[in-house]
Nucleic acid binder design. Structure first.
Lengths: 247, 247
DNA sequence: CGTTGATTTGAATATCCTCAACGTGCGTGG
DNA sequence: CCACGCACGTTGAGGATATTCAAATCAACG
């Protein structure tokens, strides 16, 4: 199947990551009040640079004491079954936290792999928990992040369980675009750094089905697409293919 | 479609739930050190009794400040799309925590409905967070619970995305039995309090497919089943139908 | 340029769904 | 007490959606 992802991860430099990350939430989804930002240096101790296709970390049987925030680029997280199948659990764009599911031991292994040249901040969970005990807003932010992550997983569950191929893909495109927009990136012109097969795995479909549907969306004037470069030309049209969840 | 679930929930009595819950983790998956168990009375303020088919709570647009632990019985959590479809996100047995995804606002609504006459402990999240700041083990337990919940969601994602109907059902039966066992309940003889349609929704299948597969499992001697009463007679045989996730 | 990997497209097939009929258990009212 | 209705469950036949297999096209890169 796939080659085992390499683990050549480099610390980007001896210094800490940019202070901008601490103060605005641009790339780190947690923040402390201005007078406490100095403490962030205890929590985030380094920034890792990861090449395309390389593995940032593998969460395994043992509980980890690190989580990672996407700084630049994008990642996928993927589980493998013992018979060689694999399922992509999600894609991660700047500002999103990875590894929250690994605070507890005794679970399946998940590989987190870069889809392109990327950077991630390593966050020490012990220090984070320690700081959360002093700063209630941080504690609450952390709980919100986990809640948010759980809500996302549930949306995926709905998509896999109750939607046909067309709707699954439409949902994915809109959601992905939405998440980029939330980080101030372009929401109508974007690059799909994952392969068709990776999209398919995430959506519980095959590569061929995804390809056919993308072609159809293109024919119907919903998107413009040249391989990896995507433009959403008719957001309304795409949205018409999906039924939003009740709120 | 389905009738809107009633909301007639009764507080079981004016007193607090049994202290046994505080000390052992039998029905409440969080605990404080012995000398602090008194504080649990602040955190858990009441026990709710819910009739079959009734709604314990609906998490909606607003962030909630409560989570619930199953005490007796079982629950399902379900999302609805605006066009009337519904997806069951999970079933909850004694000792499991519900509502963790609702600490953050601005999300889809989820109904949590009792599958039988049930009881749940209401936990005040504000008080819980407050206590977690004093007691680091509690804080860590909470994070582990959320991590565990996330890991479960990811398993479901694998099941929905990468497994055929037969494997999905086999996984469900084994997992469900396993979870009951973890709470000291019988793992080989159990009652499926959910309907075939509810199982099907959870598994992303139709009622008919589930029914056919259960019949087949029965014919093949893997299970004994009379409507809702299930015996797992050949655990190995069932396990042979699934490929576990790598760890 | 030729090789490699990703993507697209087509045709045949399989799995699962839809529709429909029938069976079963249970509570209700005659 | 029995008949009836109703909800749930089972089983079958046919059909649709998505998969599998296969081949052709395209892009990147040495």
């Amino acid at each position: 199947m796939k080659t085992i992802p390499a683990a050549t991860v480099r610390q980007v430099d001896k210094a800490h990551p940019c202070d901008r990350c601490y103060q605005s939430r641009f790339c780190l989804p947690i923040a402390l009040p201005p007078e406490q930002t100095g403490r962030m240096r205890e929590i985030v101790h380094r920034t890792m640079r990861v090449g395309k296709g390389e593995c940032l970390f593998r969460s395994g049987a043992a509980a980890m004491d690190k989580v990672y925030a996407v700084h630049v680029g994008s990642f996928k997280s993927v589980v493998h079954s013992t018979d060689g199948r694999q399922q992509i659990l999600g894609f991660h764009v700047p500002g999103e936290l990875m590894g929250l599911e690994n605070l507890v031991a005794r679970r399946h292994a998940i590989d987190v792999v870069a889809l392109e040249e990327s950077e991630a901040c390593e966050v020490n969970v012990r220090d984070l928990e320690l700081a959360a005990r002093d700063v209630s807003t941080l504690q609450h932010q952390l709980h919100c992040l986990m809640g948010d992550r759980l809500a996302r997983a549930q949306q995926d569950q709905f998509n896999l369980g109750s939607a046909h191929a067309e709707e699954r893909l439409a949902r994915f495109l809109l959601d992905f675009s939405q998440r980029l927009k939330a980080r101030g990136l372009s929401s109508w012109q974007l690059t799909l750094h994952m392969t068709r097969e990776e999209m398919a795995s995430y959506l519980g479909l095959t590569m061929e089905t995804v390809s056919r549907l993308l072609s159809r969306f293109h024919r119907d004037g919903l998107i413009r697409l040249s391989v990896r470069e995507l433009q959403i030309t008719d957001r309304e049209g795409l949205a018409a293919l999906i039924a939003p969840l009740e709120s």
